[in-house]
Simulated scan of single mutants.
Amino acid sequence: MTSEDRDTVSAAEQDGTGSRSSHVPGKPRKKHLPIWQETILLLGIALVLAIVIKALFIQAFYIPSESMEPGLVNNDRILVEKVSYWFGGTPERGDVVVFKDPGDWLSAEEKAGPQSGIAELMAQIGLYPTGGHLVKRVIGVAGDVIHCCDKKGRISVNGHPLDEASYVKEKGIACNGPMVTDCKADWTAGPVPPGHIFVMGDNRGHSADSSYHMCKPHLETDCVPGDEYVATDLVVGKVFVLLWPSDHFRWFHRPATFAGVPDDPSS
């Protein structure tokens, strides 16, 4: 028997058929799942990943009104990241945040989420916007005092006037905080309570924000002070990108004017 014949016999003996095989005798071969079962398995994995991503990292929302114009307009799609507020992190001045309704800021219609079954399912896994949320800009954090307005119509935080020209919508209003006194008198909010923030829409004349929910000093009312503040545990996350429509696409950054705000209101 030649060496070539021995090699042929040895190869045949490996699987008993005359062809090489890695199969170990006595060990059952692994069976592939049918295509339909593999599809269901992959969809299940994708669903779990989507739920985890929504719960921990990123969630989609849409802009439901004109309150954040000009930067965000009605029906814009945004993505919110949650990582910035992990491990004790809290919203910072200038952040654009999405938060749950504090209780009486939205009407029943505005709180309603998706109505169709498919949209509702997609909302649950973070692939479609949910109802009952608001989008505003953080103006003050715990301990801050917000004042409106100086001779130029600017809002001040802890005595520092904010240059908001880059994001506040010009709409024929005399100041950047008209919702309290129609710019006819000054107003002050704060100190902001611990664990809360003071928020405002960029479209200052058309935003039901913290200034809108303040008690109006020139009106006789049974308003209870404090409704203007939003608890930080209601904050879902920070807007970091305007995703859709594509011609509106842009990244969000904290405006530079907030860097000059001192932490001490008395400074």
Rank of each mutant, 00 (worst) to 15 (best):
P91L: 03
E164D: 08
H160Q: 13
M122V: 01
V157K: 02
G153K: 09
R93M: 09
G201A: 05
G172P: 05
C149G: 05
C149Y: 10
A174V: 06
S166V: 12
E120D: 14
G177F: 12
G140Q: 04
R154E: 05
C149N: 10
K111E: 14
I139Y: 12
P114Q: 10
T181F: 03
C175A: 01
K169D: 05
I125C: 06
V145I: 15
E110D: 14
Q124W: 10
V141P: 07
K152V: 00
I125R: 02
W86E: 01
V141W: 04
G132P: 00
R93C: 04
V192H: 02
D202F: 07
G195R: 10
T130A: 14
D104V: 04
W105G: 00
A142F: 01
A112C: 01
G143E: 07
W187Y: 13
L134A: 13
V135I: 15
D104M: 02
D104C: 03
V192K: 02
W86N: 04
M179Y: 00
P161T: 10
A185V: 06
D104G: 13
H147K: 11
L162I: 05
K169H: 14
S107A: 07
Y85D: 06
C175H: 02
V145K: 13
Q115H: 11
I139R: 05
V199K: 00
G140V: 09
A185S: 13
D150F: 12
G201C: 03
H160W: 05
G126Q: 14
W187V: 07
V97M: 06
Q124D: 03
E164C: 02
A123L: 03
R93W: 10
Y128S: 07
P129R: 08
F99D: 05
E92R: 14
G132Y: 01
G103Y: 00
M200K: 08
R137P: 08
L127E: 06
R154H: 10
L121G: 15
A119S: 15
G126L: 12
P194M: 04
L162Q: 09
A142R: 00
I118Y: 10
C149R: 03
I118L: 15
Q124R: 13
R204D: 09
E120W: 14
Y128C: 04
D101W: 11
G117W: 11
W86I: 01
G103M: 02
H196F: 07
I146F: 09
V199P: 00
T181S: 03
G89M: 10
G172M: 07
T181C: 01
V168W: 03
L106H: 01
R137Y: 04
A185H: 08
L106K: 06
E110T: 05
V141Y: 08
G153N: 14
G153T: 13
K100V: 03
K111D: 11
I125A: 03
F99R: 00
K111A: 09
Q115E: 15
D163K: 12
G89L: 06
G153W: 15
C183N: 12
P114H: 10
T188C: 01
V97C: 02
N176V: 03
C175G: 01
P91Q: 06
S84D: 10
V138I: 14
